[in-house]
Write a protein that binds this DNA or RNA. Structure first.
Lengths: 336, 336
DNA sequence: TTGTACGCGTTATCAG
DNA sequence: CTGATAACGCGTACAA
């Protein structure tokens, strides 16, 4: 019996008790005080207070076509990335008076699709999407249905929406410059399988700019099944044995697996190899003497997504869609 | 111009095109197929498909008093605790066809209050609350206004709502039994200031059962400003110098600060002191040789909250409110 | 088996 | 300045 609550007081009750029409109450609620006497204004304020009246958002949205609700879909809520993004979004939404409806796609395109549809059904004003990347075609349809979408941190092929992400390339340049300065002669890139735009992108940048700084081939190592990590690691050690080398990971999870594997193999950094990577998670300065990392501007990305959305909502979506890059930060620590 | 989207197709459009009344469409949508001919049924299905019609959730909720939206308020979304809870909630809600509206109170009672009000305005069917603890009085009002609330992981004084949390006491018994077995003779409890129910509770249990296992006073050390961590640590080392001792932290953040401080002071575990604590975060088996921890059933708590809520929604709230405890898990590692 | 008419709580368009 | 009255999109007695 989900509807068994105390009956809510409505605008009609307020109108009756205040001795005015509900139109006037509505005007009051929407701040159009110029259309009523100071007397009515005060009376209404009192009655609202007395009755503890609160406007029903559903009815309001139904009529006004604005829900002040922002949909947010993250690809993996358990990733340390998500909370920061969400906080950025949440903090910024609050300033604009928006609430957020959150869903977790679990990196499954089907769920992503369903949630987008659901959110539209609920009349969200816009959706901030950290996409799985598996819904290109569907997203195109959504795009010309007029639903406002801003992509967070992950991109899609077609440029359909405004996108906010980190400037990975700039960060990698900065890192390589630093490593070179420290005397490193070769770097191996460790990444999980290239199943999303971020991974693909970083790996590509690595290959692209590697020879601006180092000799020899840009070598990429894939972390697939955990069981194989040790042998991949050993492969790396063999490949780079002749030069002062460094491991560079594509994200925090990869870093974690490397640390684990090194411990299993009895390897230490920076003694046996340098170690650095994307993602600066809180524990990374506690392991060994601390790990050199590239910190992503995740919180800022969240805020920026909301700002873009507000712009699109209250002005107009930019054509072509805008691509916003936020700077990363290099944290040099003991591991390199 | 937030309403500038393509005009939506409504139930009326479908009715017109299918040549029936909107009542029949409504019946179709709600699965009451017994009230229509197989012919109509098929025709409607086709038209819906053709028009890409989707029912408007707002209108539906407004009328039916059920929104299938669950409100969730976490006290700190950036805490590693929150994502797990949220995933538990999210996964379980999905099974019941519920969406979730999430808010982050930032441990500020005022925000918590505002968000609860907001959610009620939006007609959520219930609220899962990881409370700041600063709204006792307000929550009582909410309670008898009929809003369904389930408390997640944190309790309040008055027993107003069903509550789901970890069985901290049982876990501590288990830990102490283990430590005693390892030959430890004294334990110091490190905690952040007792500003929420979880911290208060654990600290109290510590004091309560300490002498069931160890001699001497149950000593509690407070981690306040980070600057003072080192001296608190040294105080502990002095207090327990004569016996084989162990540090026991009240949560993951405390553990992190201890690890940091020990490194600053050149202390090592388990050589200089044992170390264990609540919260099993992914990096904790990477630091040193791994830290002994009590893992909380956070994900399960999330699921359980939803289950309780569904029960309250579809049957009736239990009186008196039910208190649900979920078991923790002890992970023994190298640090003790 | 199907449809008519009204209501959910607001906002918007008029005319006074 | 104020107030009927008609939407918004859907559900549901009640009637047919």
């Amino acid at each position: 019996m989900p509807g068994a609550k105390r009956k809510k007081v409505t605008i009609v009750d307020v109108a009756a008790k205040a001795g005015v029409s509900k139109t006037t109450i509505s005007r009051y609620l929407n701040g159009k005080f110029e259309y009523m006497s100071e007397e009515s204004r005060q009376k209404i304020a009192d009655v609202i207070e007395e009755l503890g009246y609160r406007p029903n958002s559903l009815a309001r949205s139904l009529k006004s076509k604005q829900s002040f609700v922002m949909g947010v879909i993250v690809s993996d809520i358990t990733s340390p990335f998500s909370p920061l993004l969400l906080k950025g979004i949440s903090d910024c939404c609050e300033r604009f008076g928006y609430r957020i409806l959150i869903a977790n796609s679990d990196d499954e395109p089907r769920k992503e699709r369903d949630y987008i549809l659901n959110m539209i059904d609920q009349s969200v004003d816009g959706i901030i999407l950290n996409t799985t990347g598996g819904n290109e075609e569907f997203l195109r349809e959504v795009a010309d249905s007029g639903t406002r979408i801003v992509l967070a941190d992950r991109t899609i092929e077609r440029e359909l929406f405004d996108t906010v992400h980190s400037s990975d390339k700039e960060a990698m340049h900065q890192l390589f410059r630093y490593l070179k300065g420290e005397g490193y002669e070769s770097v191996g890139y460790f990444t999980q399988p290239l199943t999303n735009s971020t991974r693909i992108n970083r790996c590509q940048i690595f290959r692209e700019i590697y020879n601006d700084y180092f000799e020899g081939p840009a070598q990429v190592y894939f972390l697939e099944k955990k069981l194989r990590d040790a042998s991949v690691m050993q492969e790396f050690m063999r490949d780079h044995a002749t030069r002062k080398h460094c491991i560079f990971t594509g994200n925090g999870v990869a870093t974690m697996r490397i640390v684990q594997t090194m411990r299993d193999l009895g390897l230490e950094f920076p003694r046996d190899t340098g170690l650095c990577g994307y993602d600066d998670w809180s524990w990374m300065n506690l392991v060994g003497g601390g790990i050199t990392t590239i910190a992503l501007p995740t919180y800022e990305e969240g805020r920026e997504c909301v700002k873009r959305m507000m712009h699109n909502l209250h002005y107009a979506p930019s054509t072509p869609p805008k691509n916003i890059e936020l700077p990363c930060t290099l944290h040099v620590r003991h591991s390199t």
